[in-house]
Simulated assay, not measured.
Amino acid sequence: MVELEIQVHSDRREGLLTELGHVVVTNHFSLLRQRLTQDSRGAWLSMLVRGPAEQRFALEEMLGTHTRVLSFEAALAGEVTPLSAPVAHIPRITETMAQPVVEEPAPMPEPPVAPTAPVTPDISQVEHILPKLAQDYPHIYPWLVALENSVADSVRESSLILAGRRTGAWVYKRDYAMGAKLSLSDAIKRIGVPALKLLADIEQHGVHINILNSPLCTPGVQSGCKFYGGYLEGLLGASVTPKKVFVRHLSCRSAGAAHCSMEISH
């Protein structure tokens, strides 16, 4: 079990705790403490949550791509850096708001194990690069290369996926959030293809997307096309019902294929 301190910036406070509290519970975390304030810049929600370590990435990803979240910071309890001015001590939730928390004994340390895919991304480096991606979008390839060079090889692909999801979710909120929910095929045609064409030359055949001459996937070097998969998942996930999209990578130019090919599904 881990305890995380999470600080969220949103445009308004109404319903914010309810919506993000649902995300916390969905990922098998318990909300221990919370503080919700508002100033001229928007609403600020601080939470202390406890849950399984293996669900940490999933929780942070869902929070980072949530439509109510403008920005957020998450770290192990005691390590978080505030998004704005330091927040006062967060009061413990009353019993009327949540079940009482039973203190658990500290777990015995587990022996190290070899990492297995998927590997947790370097969230701090991704968070560092996101403002630069937004500032220079769609001319983002130099920043993606910088991200690749700033993280360990073991987390390079997972970091690209997270950066893609966060960027895609940001583009959706900026350009497409006012539209109605679509079927997957319509979302690909009306949102996915036009948005992706700003980043790369592509071909679309139904649920299959080919990236032609990807700058991230030069033959004979490491593949970077996981960014595109994450981008499409973040971009399309909020536009379809149910709100979940998966991208499967079929081939990559860096491995000798003619192009990078992906398949999109619910």
Rank of each mutant, 00 (worst) to 15 (best):
Glu54Tyr: 10
His205Cys: 10
Val24Tyr: 05
Glu5Val: 08
Pro115Gly: 02
Ala58Arg: 13
Arg33Cys: 14
Val69Phe: 06
Thr81Asn: 04
Gly179Ser: 11
Glu19Thr: 13
Asp186His: 10
Gln125Ser: 11
Asp122Leu: 05
Ile264Glu: 04
Phe72Val: 05
Ile140Met: 09
Val171Trp: 09
Leu212Pro: 10
Val193Leu: 03
Leu76Ser: 12
Val101Trp: 00
Pro138Ala: 05
Ser71Tyr: 04
Ile191Lys: 10
Val101Gln: 11
Thr18Phe: 12
Glu5Tyr: 09
His89Pro: 08
Ile188Trp: 07
Val245Ala: 12
Asp11Ser: 12
Ser183Lys: 09
Phe57Ile: 11
Leu250Pro: 14
Glu148Met: 10
Arg253His: 04
Cys252Phe: 13
Glu104Gly: 00
Leu250Asp: 09
Thr67Gly: 13
Ala187Trp: 02
Tyr231Trp: 13
Arg33Leu: 00
Leu16Thr: 01
Phe227Cys: 00
Leu212Lys: 14
Val8Trp: 09
Ala88Cys: 00
Val126Thr: 03
Gly179Thr: 10
Arg190Met: 10
Trp170Leu: 10
Ile209Ala: 08
Ala163Thr: 02
His9Val: 08
His266Lys: 05
Val126Met: 11
Phe246Trp: 07
His266Leu: 11
Gln204His: 12
Ala163Gly: 04
Asp186Met: 14
Glu203Val: 12
Pro82Ile: 06
Tyr231Met: 08
Pro100Gly: 06
Val247Gly: 12
Val25Lys: 00
Asp11Pro: 03
Ala98Tyr: 03
Ser159Val: 01
Arg248Trp: 08
Lys173Met: 14
Gln7Lys: 00
Ile161Ala: 14
Met47Lys: 03
Ala74Gln: 04
Pro105Leu: 03
Leu32His: 05
Gly256Tyr: 05
Leu130Trp: 09
Ser84Ile: 09
Gln99Val: 11
Pro91Trp: 00
Glu3Ile: 15
Val87Thr: 13
Thr218Pro: 01
Val151Arg: 04
Glu14Asp: 13
Val25Thr: 10
Gly220Val: 12
Arg50Phe: 06
Arg56Ser: 14
Pro111Ser: 00
Gly224Asn: 03
Glu157Met: 11
Met178Cys: 11
Pro109Ser: 05
Val87Glu: 12
Leu83Lys: 01
Ile129Gln: 05
Glu263Phe: 06
Ala255Asp: 02
Lys189Thr: 14
Pro142Tyr: 03
Leu196Ala: 11
Leu162Pro: 08
Pro194Met: 03
Thr81Ile: 13
Asp11Thr: 15
Val49Cys: 01
Arg41Phe: 02
Gln125Lys: 04
Ala134Gly: 00
Arg56Lys: 09
Ile264Pro: 07
Ser40Leu: 13
Ala255Gln: 07
Ser254Trp: 04
Tyr137Gly: 04
Ala75Val: 07
Pro115Ala: 10
Ile161Gly: 06
Ile129Glu: 03
Met108Trp: 02
Ala258Ile: 09
His208Leu: 12
Trp44Leu: 15
Leu235His: 00
Lys132Gln: 13
His66Ser: 10
Leu4Glu: 14
Ala88Asn: 05
Ser150Asn: 02
Arg56Val: 04
Val49Leu: 06
Val240Trp: 02
Trp170Phe: 03
Ser183Gly: 13
Val221Pro: 05
Val23Ala: 13
Ala152Gly: 14
Ser30Pro: 01
Phe246Thr: 15
Gly179Pro: 08
His89Thr: 15
Ile209Asp: 07
Leu45Pro: 01
Ser183Pro: 06
Ser159Gln: 02
Ile123Arg: 07
Leu45Lys: 01
Arg50Glu: 14
Val49Pro: 01
Leu199Gly: 06
Val102Gln: 12
Pro118Trp: 11
